[in-house]
Every structure is written in C-alpha cells, then in structure tokens.
Amino acid sequence: MDGTCRHDYNLWIVVHPPEKDVPGQWLAHCLEFDTISQGNSFEHALKMIFEAIVMVVHADRLAGREPMERRAPEEFYEELYALLGRGEKVSMAELEKLSHEGRITTPCATQIELHARHVENRAQEAVPRLMRQFPVFTQPELACC
C-alpha cells in the first residue's frame, strides 16, 4: 500500500446564458460542489468552472474535507431534473454552434467525470484531472421564442 487514495466524481454542471444585468457573461454552476464560475462564452464558462473545481477539490483535500459536502441546495437539483426531463440531448459541438448563433437563451446542463488522486501525507499531489465530458442537455427550440 502506498497510501494513495483515488476519488472519482460525477459532477453536474448547469450553464446559464448571459443576462441583461451582466452582458456577455455565461455562468457555470457545479451542483455537487456548489461552486460557480463565469466566462465570456459558453466554452469559456466551462473552462472556468473546470479550473474552479480543481481549486476546490485541491483545497478541500488539503484541509481533509470532502468537497461533496458543499452540495448545492435541493432547489438547484429540482431545476436540473426539470431541465433533464424536458431538454434535448445534443453534442458539445452542436451546443457550441448554437451558442455562437445566439440560440441558447435558457440554462443547459452537462455532466463531467473527475478523478482526483491523493497521496496520504503528501497533499500537494491531490491534483484532480478532468477525464470525460458527457453530452449536454439544452432547449435550443426555446431560443426562438
């Protein structure tokens, strides 16, 4: 045994398109870690939330804390389940095309898989890696309304 622990996470990310209050800023919310970030485009918001997630996992592991304990309030999951129920599954490439066309006007959701490796007594090695990204759920048909 080398004291290595591996933590795998499946994380839901809800991405909100820009609103009038802050034009051009997409917001991304990781529900399991209740961590939020924002970016200048859909892709940038995802890139930003990945960076934020890594910061949170790293900091929590260093502090001996489980990041899943940050979990967002249930109302956010209810919104996610509603979106999954009525949303349309699209590929990331399609989603990026829709966002560039300005056709994403409602929140979208995607799931990512994260692997974090932690070596006992050597917390600086607890660097998480993004392993896989799943399709996106969105409602592109609503964009025209």
């Binding site: 909100h16 802050v22 800023q25 917001l27 919310h29 209740d34 961590t35 939020i36 970030s37």
Partner: peptide, 14 residues
C-alpha cells in the same frame, strides 16, 4: 470583472 447575482449568492452560501 462583473460578478453575477447567482455567483454572489453561491459565495454567501459557501
């Protein structure tokens, strides 16, 4: 950077 409302709420929750 202008930080959106939902972001500020998340910060306060944390």
């Amino acid at each position: 950077s202008e930080i959106r409302d939902l972001y500020i709420k998340g910060l306060c929750r944390c």
